[in-house]
Design a protein around this nucleic acid. Structure first.
Length: 321
DNA sequence: ATACCTTGGCGTCATCTGTA
DNA sequence: TACAGATGACGCCAAGGTAT
């Protein structure tokens, strides 16, 4: 049986996605990967290691039999899936149910990485997310730890702190410095209706209205006779969609508001999911980078160990002569 | 210049997972 | 158990590279 101790750094990067399972093996073994070092077990306890430069080294029971890698190939998972699908062919289970049974979800990237990091200090932990923007803003002494940052259609930033203080900042200003701070007077008790704010950023400016409800900020659109409200995503300047086309007064009228409420909830959900997807992709990239690093480290270790082994063997052979 | 391919990012949906 | 968050899957789009 031939086993390759291989480089998986570039071409097989995707193959190194872990399934969340771990063991103590230090060497990543993948039968499908290109070989730098070949190991062939000639007889029990004796392994022939072929180095990338063509040299062959016989190893007597030092290199253990291949164990499952820390980094598992997704190919394995694919094969499992294919097999399972074959097995279930013809059964009366729905596709959804099949998928549910077949696709065992892997733990989150943060979880996997944190597990890895507990094993190896070289692997950085992914912190519980705390948006960089929020961190940097919280250092501003005049703001009491904002929980959400929004941007209006005019480019102004709105920060809502935990204390329900609202701060406005013009574009270009560093973080929220120099912003105005307003306080929501009726925020102590949750109202069924919305909190409406009006403000003028500068003397002479037309007033701008904000509509707060359920922790979300709706910003009145700049144009149009009918007031429209755009739901703005925290930390994003993009208006997600027009949410309201009615006047603020009618927003507090539940019977006519039902459809709008449904739409609004959907928009909020989509917005949150959009942000979550972004964050998830970011974490995934970080996770892949960490795996790359880990592969590089393990390859180095492997190389060093093989060289060490070779040197020891040389010494041993010289003594035997 | 144009067509085609690859890659990377995004938004959305469906579903899983953890927690109150 | 309901709910919010996380994530896999899918389709779309834009940018860059390459062959013709």
């Amino acid at each position: 049986m031939d086993t390759s101790v291989s480089s998986q750094l570039d071409s097989s990067l995707n193959d190194s996605m872990t399934d969340g399972e771990e063991n103590d093996s230090e060497v990543s073994l993948s039968p499908a990967a290109p070989s730098q070092v070949l190991m062939a077990e000639e007889s029990p306890g004796v392994t022939v290691v072929q180095l990338s430069d063509g040299q062959t080294v016989q190893v007597h029971g030092v290199i253990q039999a291949p164990q499952t890698s820390v980094i598992q190939s997704p190919q394995v998972q694919t094969v499992e899936i294919a097999t399972a699908e074959e097995n279930e062919e013809g059964e009366s289970v729905t596709d959804t149910q099949k998928r549910r049974e077949i696709l065992s979800r892997r733990p989150s990237y943060r979880k996997i990485l944190n597990e890895l990091s507990s094993d190896s200090p070289a692997v950085p932990k992914i912190e519980e997310e705390k948006a960089d923007e929020e961190v940097s803003i919280s250092s501003n002494a005049s703001v009491s730890v904002p929980t959400s940052i929004y941007q209006t259609s005019s480019g102004q930033y709105i920060a809502i702190s935990q204390g329900r203080a609202i701060q406005l900042t013009n574009p270009g200003a560093e973080a929220l410095q120099g912003g105005q701070t307003l306080t929501v007077a009726n925020s102590a008790t949750p109202q069924p209706g919305a909190t409406i704010l009006q403000c003028a950023a500068q003397p002479g400016d037309s007033t701008q209205q904000f509509y707060l409800q359920g922790g979300q900020v709706f910003v009145q659109a700049a144009t149009g006779d009918i007031p429209a409200y755009q739901l703005r995503s925290p930390n994003s300047g993009l208006a997600q969609s027009i949410v309201m086309a009615a006047s603020p007064g009618s927003m507090q009228n539940p019977p006519t508001h039902h459809a709008e409420e449904v739409t609004r909830k959907r928009e909020v959900r989509l917005m949150k999911n959009r942000e979550a997807a972004r964050e998830c992709r970011r974490k995934k990239k970080e996770y892949v980078k960490c795996l790359e690093n880990r592969v590089a480290v393990l390859e180095n270790q492997n190389k060093t160990l093989i060289e060490e082994l070779k040197a020891l063997k040389d010494i041993y052979c010289h003594k035997a002569e």
